[in-house]
Amino acid sequence: MITATRKPMEEILKSVEPFSKILLLGCNECVTVCHAGGRKEVALLGAALRLGRLQKGLPMEVEELTLERQCDPEYVEELSRTIDQYDAVCSMACGCGVQTIAERYPSMPVMPMVNTAFMGASESHGVWAERCAGCGDCVLGYTGGICPVARCSKRIFNGPCGGSTKGKCEISNDVDCAWQLIWDRLKELGQTELYSKLMEPKDWRTARDGGPRRIVREDMAL
C-alpha cells in the first residue's frame, strides 16, 4: 500500500491562502487504510481548515468529498459537473491522485494535503513501515523475502556494511540491519548458499534511474 501523512497545518493553511472556496477531496483506497486521506481525515481536515481560517478572520468554504479512487480517470470524472464552483481542489490522495486530478482539470489549481511517503506494510495498529522501493527488478527470491533496496539504508547487495552492529543499522538503533534479517531468514530456510552467491551490480535503469516508468499491456489496450 502507498502510505502518506497529512502535511503540517501551517503549510496547508499557507497553500490555501489565496482561496475562499475549496473542494477537499479524499480517496477511499490506500490513504484511507493508512489514516491519511479517507472520509474521516477529510472531515477532520475540513473542520481544522475552517477553524484555522476563521481564527485568522478569513472564513473559507470547504466542501468535502471522497472518491472511490483518485488515480483512475473514471472516478475523477465525477467532479466534472461541479468542479467549476471551487477556487481549488485540495487533494488528500497520494501524488498519483493529485496528478490525475491535475491532468483532467488543467485550469483548476490542485493542492496536495498529504506527503506521500512510501510503499509499506502495516506492522501493527497505527504503525506502517517501508517494504518496497519499486526498483523494477525484484530480488526478494534471493534475499529470504527481505528487500535490501527498501530496507538497507545503503541499498547494498552483498552482505552488510561495516555499520551493522548487533543486528542494527548504524543510522539508528531503531532500524534493523536488513542484511542481518536476510541472513537470519536464509538460515531458517536452509538457503545460506544464496548468501555466498555474489550478486552482480544492479541495473538501476528499471528503477528511477531510467527515467519515468510506464507499464503497457498490449493485450489489454482498448
Partner: peptide, 8 residues
C-alpha cells in the same frame, strides 16, 4: 465507529 477512517 470513532476510528473507522472511511466513516463506514
Amino acid at each position: 465507529a470513532a476510528e473507522c477512517p472511511a466513516q463506514a
